[in-house]
């Protein structure tokens, strides 16, 4: 077993282990932190694939930006419930496991059945990456900047608190608060024990 293979296994186990915590951890702050571990280890995998620029972007954008944002989200929305996610009912977890296993089975079967090139070619340099962005993919690049701008504006518009003086309030909010329904029916698959 070469050193690279050992490295791969270590990183793979770290990614999957942390990923498992992301989807199962009850504490939402832990979830987000485990996500950080997953993403950082993916960055390591990127380095092993000689995509150093991407690794840097991954750390800066994801681990830096997105996770901070998600932590904010957790703090803002679960301050009353103590960061705890309610547990899914058992049958839902079972069904989810079946689905995930099916996905894994189908995708890995497809991978294993496909003849793949195992030989590596020279990884593109960051310079080549930048040139590609500004020549071949310049249109997509500009479209992306537009998309980010609209995402920012859209997020502000969606999440903006509508004050009483806002004339738009007259038309009613997009989602009306609704009195909780009587229990029962097919909607609630599990009893909301956190209430």
């Amino acid at each position: 077993m070469s050193g690279e293979q050992v490295g791969f296994w270590v990183v793979a186990l770290a990614i999957l282990g942390a990923g498992r915590q992301v989807v199962t951890s009850r504490n939402l702050v832990h979830t987000v932190l485990w996500l950080a571990v997953t993403l950082a280890n993916t960055a390591v995998a990127f380095v092993m694939l000689e995509a150093t620029f991407l690794a840097a972007v991954q750390v800066l954008l994801y681990t830096g930006g997105v996770l901070t944002l998600m932590l904010f989200g957790v703090m803002l929305t679960t301050r009353d419930t103590g960061f705890v996610d309610v547990r899914s009912p058992l049958h839902r977890g079972f069904a989810g496991g079946v689905l995930a296993a099916a996905v894994m089975a189908l995708v890995s079967a497809s991978i294993l059945r496909t003849p793949l090139p195992e030989a590596r070619v020279t990884a593109p340099t960051t310079e080549a990456l930048g040139a590609s962005f500004l020549t071949e993919h310049v249109l997509a690049f500009e479209a992306l900047s537009l998309l980010l701008l609209s995402a920012v504006i859209g997020a502000v518009v969606i999440a903006r608190r509508r004050d009483a003086g806002d004339p738009r309030e007259e038309r009613g909010p997009a989602i009306r608060p609704r009195a909780p329904r009587a229990a029962g029916g097919a909607v609630r698959l599990g009893a909301p024990e956190a209430e």
Partner: peptide, 15 residues
């Protein structure tokens, strides 16, 4: 697959 599992089982939107 882990992600799929999380998407269909997490109950918190941030999760």
């Amino acid at each position: 697959s882990l992600g799929v599992f999380g998407v269909v089982t997490r109950r918190n939107a941030i999760g």
